[in-house]
Amino acid sequence: MKKLFYKYFLLIEIFVVSSLFPQDRLSIQFDYANKLFQTSQYFDAITEYKRLLFFDEAKKYSYKAYFQIGKCYKAGAKFDEAIKYFSTASINAANENEKLSVYFEIVRTNISRRTTSRALQILDEIEKENTNTFIRDSINYWRGWTYIFADDWKNAADAFSKIKSDHELKKLCEQVEKEKVSVTFTKAISYFLPGAGEVYSGNILSGSITFGWNLLFGYLTINSFAEERIFDGMVIGSLGWLRFYRGNIQSAEESAKQKNIAIANKILKYLQYEYKGAKP
């Protein structure tokens, strides 16, 4: 009788295991696709996630597979496609946590795509529906990153300070904000002293040449008027002095903008290659 019992048990076991096997195939396929993803073979990973979705009739892996496909496209800088698949993943999300993960991924993709106003809009929407402290920290963290990519370092610092008053990224943003030169001030001083704006924003040689041209044409113009060569004065004044005076203001503005870009880029480079925290 015991022997018979074992026989029955074995049969049932074989039956159960064999009927469960297709389920295992799906998880093996998911692992296989993940392995391709982890080894940066994103195009092939998408094929395998799609294969998984095709055979997963119970839609058990829909959320995970769509989410991963979105991530693959994001890694290939195909942001529009990435957002399309993240949106499909959000439709297939089983709970609020899964939905939130997708939304944050869409925000990060928008940051990478530099569609920062859309990223801010989504973050506002998430904030409206979630009051949890942990989620709020995440919202502020990605809001900070969004402002960084929008070149708005002051608001970025504010967002990071809401997480922690001495947040590492807050300090970096404040440093950028402090180092940047005021474009308005640079232009304003150039109105009074040609070349001054360029010198102020670090372009000493260029500023000196600007000053030289203005001095030369200013002298020639005034000299022409002084010698009562009115026509010459008008021609030199309009074609020479005015041209270089107006050019000086444009150059000052450009120079200040370039300097600000250089300051921001130094930190952006650090953030991309050396910063250890989560990045878009």
């Binding site: 290939g76 800088a77 195909k78």
Partner: peptide
């Protein structure tokens, strides 16, 4: 939009740095 995957592509690292139009 249909052509995205008609040619095999690889990972692309997009620079964080701002472009200098000048």
């Amino acid at each position: 939009s249909a052509q995205t995957d008609w040619v095999k592509w690889n990972a692309v690292q997009v620079s964080y740095e701002m472009k200098n139009n000048n």
